[in-house]
Design a protein around this nucleic acid. Sequence first.
DNA 1: TTGAAAGCGCTAACAT
DNA 2: ATGTTAGCGCTTTCAA
Lengths: 341, 341
Amino acid sequence: MKKVTIKEVAEAAGVSTMTVSRVLNDRPDVSAVTRKRVQEIIHEMSYRPSAVARSLIRGKSHTLGIAVFGLEHYGPSSTLVGVEKQAVELGYSMLVSLMHDGVPGRETQQQILENLLSRQVDGIVWAIAEHEVNRDWLCQRTRELSTPVAFLNMQPRPDTTMVAVNNYAGGRLATEHLLKQHYRRIGLITGPLSWWEARQRQAGWRDALQESGLSTEGLEVYGDWSAASGEAGMRRLLEQSPDLEALFASNDQMALGAFQAARSAGRRIPQDLAVVGFDDIPEAAYFDPPLTTIRQDLRRMGTLAVQLVHRNMEARWREEGFEPEVLWVQPELIVRQSSNS
Amino acid sequence: MKKVTIKEVAEAAGVSTMTVSRVLNDRPDVSAVTRKRVQEIIHEMSYRPSAVARSLIRGKSHTLGIAVFGLEHYGPSSTLVGVEKQAVELGYSMLVSLMHDGVPGRETQQQILENLLSRQVDGIVWAIAEHEVNRDWLCQRTRELSTPVAFLNMQPRPDTTMVAVNNYAGGRLATEHLLKQHYRRIGLITGPLSWWEARQRQAGWRDALQESGLSTEGLEVYGDWSAASGEAGMRRLLEQSPDLEALFASNDQMALGAFQAARSAGRRIPQDLAVVGFDDIPEAAYFDPPLTTIRQDLRRMGTLAVQLVHRNMEARWREEGFEPEVLWVQPELIVRQSSNS
DNA sequence: TTGAAAGCGCTAACAT
DNA sequence: ATGTTAGCGCTTTCAA
């Protein structure tokens, strides 16, 4: 089937394209008879106005761009779900760009940005974790654009719109929960420290311990978010600190790996070792034992990011100013049996 | 920053828009001097050609539409990753539409399809599981389109392009693995039977048992893919068939739930009960015990779907015919300790 | 090697 | 209430 254009519809209906256009846009200035006839023809020919032509003329594409890293994982996909839902509610479609490789390089990020812009997206949500790759250039670049951008989970910067989970607070929450139960030797398996989120969780753990006058000596090992790294990390931790009483794993997968290492070492959870994770993946409640963890409302984060972008767009539309703002989402402690003393 | 157009670039360079266009498209018929100058100006003004205008004129948007259901889950997000990767490699961007609610209704699917089409996508990948909602209308509709569509994981139909995992074979694989180890009372926790995939896995299990001359009586309970339903299902199964020796859970989450129920019932895995799951989610290898499961190469499925769509598009471009085809992806048995006798 | 004119599909602004 | 003209940003065609 060839694509039908407004011209053909107009011809078939014996009216001008303008009249068809008016019917399409529900304008009041069309006689009821004409409207009805045109609508019928539209239906018959299964005519569908070209969003592309409309974008060109209106200078708005009704499309939001989103760049996501690590979509296979629970966090990014939940976030994307939140973003999409809100986007659709506000009448936008989603142009999605993914980053796959181990570390999101500058080259690729640049390409993604330019591609989204060339497709005339009305706004952008940047859900690519901040790595050691210098990100200032990106933030700088976005400030020069006429297209609003909201960043997710990144080190806050002045004049930048951002939504982030308070990972620092999450780290403290986890650690303080363990401290309250009188554990004193509380280990940490970090995420890759090139990630902002991993550093924040680490800082929360460290500060909580230090404020209680406790040492962090020998209690910290490095993971890469994977269950395998959690297992290896736990093993190292038990070797270097056999007096370990509790563990804060920077995500649930690593906690799961740690469970396995603890089992092989003959340590029961929670009797011999209390564990807290981070994320609250759907499986966490069914771990053995069910995992105490820090829940992040990722969908909400996505939703908020879209709202910020949208408000920003509307402001620019009306030629008003828009104050960049940073929105913090608070994480929540979910207590299950892995931390019960 | 206002958006720069080709006109402004042309003016700044003192040439016609045509010359700029030629430079943009790397046409040979521009003098080296002019080309260089224009390129510099383009860079200076950070001019970016409008993909929208190009789409309009060329009748190709270089965009692929994809409709996905249940993106929070591991399966759909892996598939999307595969789709996106291949799409980008072939020079397309991805317009993503999500379905959220419990059951993907016809209304919403229709809307999604129309929306993608109105945005002039060059091709569509339909990754929404087939439910009891009658899908024939959708397939029929796509046959009338000038835009090629590839379906994922659906009941094969004539004249329809599709990629699917052989879920039936997967179900047999799981069950035969258990049979080989001399288990005879092998239970099944199904997915929601409104899903084609769930029915296929069920059929594989049933046929395998029946061909071995075994009864399926009292060995089947219904789940909804969630770990909670796996736990409830396992409990029921143990009640109605206390002589249960093994279990095939139609996905890994339900297997995880079943683990928990088995534990509370005092049954050890695998000594008292062997378990096989389906999907091979990344966590499966770290369950306690590690889960034997059926792996599906979901990324590959996504990749293949895009390739089919692309070949189809090229064929239409050259006004050739294109034979709809059905591609089957074979699942693979991953043996871990949950099924070791 | 370069440019002018026409037009992709649609709508805003101005007739009638 | 309806039609005409012009133009969104770019490229195709044809002329110079």
